[in-house]
Amino acid sequence: MKKLFIILILLSTNAIAGGGSGVPLRDVKWPFDGAFGTVDRTAAQRGYQVYKEVCASCHALEYISYRNLKEIGFSEAEVKAIAAEATVIDGPNDDGDMFERPGRLSDRFVSPFANEKAARAVNGGAYPPNLSLIVKSRPNGANYLYSLLTGYQDAPGSMEMNEGMYYNKYFSGNQIAMAPPLMDEIVEYMDGTHPSVDQMARDVTIFLQWAAEPEMEQRKRMGIKVFAYLIIFTILFYLAKKIIWRDIK
């Protein structure tokens, strides 16, 4: 009873709904939600395409290696090709120089900028965040990301926009330095799915959710098994306790 009471209090202290701007986020039913969530691999592959063609020019995907792409259903050959398209800086060679070479499976994704300062310099002082953890680093991250990407609108008449900023309903302060990245048909999907803004936003969110938590499916599967085990364990020990305590008067 006491435990339940305290759990309820704890749960209520967590402000879930609000995006940075306090506006309730769009709530989507994601395939990865819940105890039986999965990574929708076809969607994730499309999402990768969106990342590569739209986002990768400014946003790094720091903690993902090319070999990780096998986990969302690309074949080894496909992933090798993707890696080889990238140019990686390696070295120093025997002359002491850094050199360029095509990417390998073991390489991390190449960043568009050498470091944060370079990124800021090209983007008017704003830093396009690394996307490999974006879904975990915002409360209700998947819904936030989807809302943000679909939340661009014309600024309300009364609002004065700063130079170079765009109005977004969900971004904290409503002014975001990133221009609306998605437009209908900005990407041509290889599987022929119609690339509406909504579709691309969903797909890239699914991809980035995987990128933030590649272990998610394994974790939830293991959780189900552990739960089943623990329930049996607890029932068994409850019965044992009852039987052993029978002789206490």
């Binding site: 085990y229 049996i232 364990f233 068994l236 020990f237 019965l239 044992a240 039987i243 052993i244």
Partner: peptide, 13 residues
């Protein structure tokens, strides 16, 4: 019965 339950429970542990 008691022995069985205790044994099973201990094995689970």
């Amino acid at each position: 019965r008691r022995d069985f339950i205790v044994l099973t429970a201990s094995a689970m542990a």
